[in-house]
Design a protein around this nucleic acid. Structure first.
Length: 423
RNA sequence: GGAGAGGUGGCUGAGUGGCCUAAAGCGCUGGUUUGCUAAACCGGUGAUGGGGUUUAAAUCCCAUCCGGGGGUUCGAAUCCCCCCCUCUCCGCCA
C-alpha cells in the first residue's frame, strides 16, 4: 500500500511511476473516492462533536428535568443523522481501502525501463554455463530418476506436482536445506520455524491477498491459507508492532514447504522438478531502516549468490525491468541457475525490496530515535534458496558418463557421499 | 471438544451507563536539589485519521482507539449478541 498523502499531493508522480510498471490504475477514481471520504468524515466528526458537547451538558442536568427531556428529543435527531452518515462514511472507507490495495508499489529510479521479460537486464554472470557438458540431459530423462523422485506415486496419492522424494533423493533434499540454513545462519540470519498456515490478515499484509487469491491453497473450515512462501508468516512476525530502532536491521531466515496452485502453468515449465505445487525453500528476510534498504538488498542478493557459488552452479543475475516487476516490489533481482540438460535458466531466487509497501499494510514500524515518532520499516526478502530447481540444475550439470551425479564438495558433508547413484 | 474465569496505555492495575479528557503505581524522560552515585521533589510521557498554520516541521483544533465486529441508548471501557485469543479444570492426543 502506498502513502495516501503521496497520491493526494503528487498524483502525477504516482502516475508516471506506475506507467513504468506498465500497469493501468484509475488514479482519478481513487482521488474522487478519497475526496468523498474526507468530506463525509468531516461531516460525521462535526456531528459527533455536537453529541459530545450535549453529553457533557446533560450530565450536569437533573435526569427528569424539562431541559433534560428537551435535550434528549433534540439529540435523538442528531443521533439518527450520525447513524446514517456513519454508514455512508464506512462504505466510502471500504471503497477507499480497496482502491488503495489495488494500487501497485512504485519502482525505484534504478529499475530499467521495459515491458517484457526479454527486457530484463543481465546484471551479472557467474560460472561457465557455456562450457560443453556432453552427458547433460533433462533431469527427468536420467535413467532411474523415477526411483528417487517418484512423480507417479505422488500423483496417485495427492495429485500432479506433489512428488515423493525417496532414499537418496530425500537425503539430497535434506542435505540442501541443511546446507542453506547453516550458511544463512553464518551470514547472520536467525533461523525461524514458522507456521505454514496463515490467516487472511497475514496474507493481505504481504500482498498475497487480494492479488494472488486463486494461487493459494485454502482450508475450508478454518479459512486458513497454506503458505506460498515463508515470506508470509515471517513478514507478519512483527505485524502491528513498533520495534526499537536499535534492533534494526533484523535478519531472519526460515525453511518451509511452499504450496502453490500454479493455475495456468503448462508445457516445458512444469516438467520434472521445474514447477511443483509443493516444494521446499529457505527464505531470507530483513526488516531494515529506510535509509539502508538498497544497500541491504544488494547484501541479501550476495548472500543468496554465495550459496550457488559454493555449490559450483553457473548462474546469472537479472535486474528486472519495470514491466516484469511484481505488484509489490520496488526493485527485484532474479537469480537463475543454468540447467545444462534443458539448456535453460531456472529461477531459484527472487530478491526484492518492498520499501514500505508491505510495512504499511502490515503496520510494521520502528520508533525513530531523533523524532521519537514511529516510522515504517522497509522489508526485503529473497530465497536462499528454492530446492527443486537447484536440484534440477545440480542433477543435470553434474551428471557423469557413468550415470551418477557428482555431489559438490560443499554438500558432501551434508549428503555423506561424493556421488548420487540411481541404481 | 465441554465447563468456568479473563483480555483496559510500554508494564502492573482501578474503573458496572453521563466531569472517563481512563485513577494509581512502575518504567521512560526533562528539570530542581546535590562532592559523586543514589535518593527526594516538580513536570512531561500513546497511536491513528482529518483540519488548519507553515518553505517545512513543531505548536494548534477536531474526531477515533479499553481484544475484533455488530447492536441497544440522547449518551457505552461499562449493557446485549457473534467471533478471536489467554488461563484453569475435564476430555482427546504425538
Amino acid at each position: 500500500m502506498l502513502d495516501p498523502k503521496l497520491i493526494r499531493e503528487s498524483p502525477d508522480l504516482v502516475r508516471i511511476a506506475i506507467a513504468k510498471k506498465h500497469l493501468t490504475v484509475d488514479l482519478d477514481a481513487v482521488l474522487a473516492i478519497d475526496a468523498t471520504w474526507r468530506a463525509q468524515l468531516q461531516e460525521v466528526e462535526a456531528l459527533r462533536s455536537r453529541q459530545k458537547a450535549a453529553n457533557t451538558a446533560m450530565a450536569a442536568l437533573p435526569k427528569g428535568s424539562p431541559e433534560f427531556i428537551a435535550k434528549v428529543a433534540e439529540m435523538k435527531a442528531v443521533s439518527a443523522q450520525v447513524k446514517e452518515r456513519e454508514a455512508q462514511l464506512k462504505e466510502s472507507e471500504e471503497k477507499f481501502r480497496q482502491a488503495m490495495l489495488s494500487i501497485p508499489n512504485l519502482p525505484h529510479a534504478s529499475v530499467p525501463e521495459g515491458r517484457t521479460p526479454e527486457q530484463n537486464v543481465v546484471f551479472a554472470l557467474h560460472g561457465a554455463h557455456a562450457e560443453p557438458r556432453p552427458h547433460a540431459i533433462p533431469h527427468w530423462e536420467i535413467p532411474g530418476f523415477d526411483k528417487l523422485f517418484d512423480f507417479a506415486r505422488g500423483a496417485k496419492v495427492t495429485g500432479a506436482g506433489f512428488p515423493f522424494y525417496v532414499g537418496d533423493g530425500a537425503r539430497l533434499v535434506r542435505a540442501l536445506l541443511h546446507f542453506f540454513l547453516d550458511e544463512n545462519a553464518q551470514a547472520g540470519y536467525v533461523e525461524v520455524n514458522p507456521p505454514i498456515f496463515v490467516n487472511a490478515a497475514s496474507a493481505t499484509a504481504t500482498g498475497a491477498l487480494p492479488d494472488k487469491e486463486g494461487q493459494m491453497y485454502e482450508t475450508t473450515i478454518d479459512k486458513l491459507y497454506a503458505v506460498p512462501t515463508a515470506e508470509v508468516p515471517l513478514t507478519n512476525f512483527f505485524r502491528d508492532e513498533i520495534v526499537d530502532e536499535a534492533t534494526l536491521p533484523i535478519y531472519r531466515c526460515a525453511y518451509t514447504p511452499c504450496f502453490r496452485r500454479e493455475a495456468g502453468s503448462y508445457g516445458k515449465d512444469v516438467r520434472g522438478l521445474n514447477r511443483l505445487h509443493q516444494f521446499d525453500k529457505v527464505e531470507l528476510l530483513k526488516w531494515v531502516h529506510p535509509a539502508t534498504s538498497y544497500e541491504e538488498l544488494d547484501k541479501l542478493r550476495g548472500d543468496a549468490e554465495r550459496l550457488l557459488q559454493k555449490l559450483d552452479l553457473p548462474y546469472r543475475v537479472l535486474l528486472m525491468c519495470g514491466g516484469d516487476l511484481g505488484f509489490a516490489q520496488s526493485k527485484k533481482y532474479d537469480l537463475e541457475v543454468w540447467s545444462a540438460g534443458q539448456k535453460r535458466w531456472l529461477e531459484v531466487s527472487s530478491c526484492s525490496n518492498f520499501e514500505a509497501f508491505q510495512a504499511r499494510r502490515a503496520q510494521i514500524r520502528f520508533r525513530a530515535k531523533d523524532s521519537g515518532k514511529p516510522e515504517l520499516v522497509h522489508t526485503i526478502n529473497g530465497s536462499g534458496l528454492a530446492v527443486p530447481r537447484v536440484l534440477a540444475a545440480l542433477l543435470e550439470n553434474n551428471l557423469q558418463a557413468d550415470g551418477r551425479v557428482k555431489i559438490p564438495a560443499a554438500l558432501v558433508p551434508y549428503f555423506g557421499k561424493e556421488f548420487l547413484g540411481f541404481a
